[in-house]
Design a protein around this nucleic acid. Sequence first.
DNA 1: TTCTATGCAAAGCATTTGCAAGTCC
DNA 2: GGACTTGCAAATGCTTTGCATAGAA
Lengths: 152, 152
Amino acid sequence: MSLHQKFRMTRQRQVILDELKKVHTHPTADQVYAMTRGRLPRISLGTVYRNLEILSASGLIQKLELGRAQKRFDGNAENHYHIRCVSCGCVDDVMCSILTSIEQDLCKTSEYEILGHRLEFLGVCPRCKDKRTGTRKKMKKGGSYGIKGVTD
Amino acid sequence: MSLHQKFRMTRQRQVILDELKKVHTHPTADQVYAMTRGRLPRISLGTVYRNLEILSASGLIQKLELGRAQKRFDGNAENHYHIRCVSCGCVDDVMCSILTSIEQDLCKTSEYEILGHRLEFLGVCPRCKDKRTGTRKKMKKGGSYGIKGVTD
DNA sequence: TTCTATGCAAAGCATTTGCAAGTCC
DNA sequence: GGACTTGCAAATGCTTTGCATAGAA
C-alpha cells in the first residue's frame, strides 16, 4: 500500500509476479491464490491481496477494476483497454489505441483537473456466443480478430 | 430484479424516484436512504436497494458502477459520461458526446459481440483543488466549464 | 383476492486489518 | 538488527436474501 518504504522481493511476491506474467488471462485475487499454491502451499489469501496491491502500486502489474465485479490483475503493465464478457465474466485485452484526445478536450471545458480515464467494453465472448446454439441474433462468422484470444 | 413481472408503483418506490430526480448529485444507496427518511421514516435500507435496482432495470434511473467504489444512482436516465474525484469521491456529469464509433471499430476486429462500453473520467474536483491551498502543480484559473456543477 | 413489496435481521462476499512470529537486506 | 512481511483469523463494508406481514391492482 505504502511505497513510501522500500519493498523487498520476497519469495511470495516473486512467485505471484511470475505466475501473473506467465498467463494472458486476467485472474482474480483468489485465482492468483490458487495459481501460487502449487509453489507456495502455505501462502495465505491475505498475503496475495497485499502483494497484488503492492505490485500494482509499483507499476509491475496492473489492477483492473471493471464494473463492480471482483478485481482482476494483469501481468501486462502496459496501458491498454479491456473487454468483459457479460455472460461468463471473462476479460480479454482489446487491441486498440489509447484515446488521448478526449482527456485534452475535457481539460478545456472542465473545472476538474483531469487525471485520466477508464474505458471498458462489454460484450459476449466467442465461447459464449457458441454456447447459445443458434437461438440468437447477430452471429458473426468472420475470422479476423483484434482481441488477444486468451480467457478467464 | 425481474421485470418479467409487472411492477407496482408503491409509495416507497415513488419517493425514491422523486428524490433522485430532484437532485443532480449521484447519491449512493445509503444517501438515498437518508434522503427518503424524511418522508418515509420507516423505510428500510433493503427496500431502498431493491427499488434502486428495479428502477434502474426499468430504465427510469441509471445505476453507476464506477471503479469498485460504492454504487451510485443518477436520476438522469439519459446516456452520459461521468467524472469522479479521486480525492473526495464525488461524481459529476461530463458534458461530452457519446463515443459511437469506437464500438463500431471494435466490431470489425473483435471476435466478441460488442454490446457497449463504459467510460469514466478521473480527476480532482474544483472543491478539492481549492482545499490543497497553493501547494500543488497545474492550478487552472479559467472560468469556463463543461461539467454540470453539482456534487456529492 | 392474489401476487408483489416491505421491514427486519441475518447472511454473503470480496477485501482489509491486527497481531505475533518470521524473513530479508 | 531492524524494518518489512507473513499467516492466521477476525473484522469490515456494501449489498443481498429469507421470511412473515402489509399493500397495490
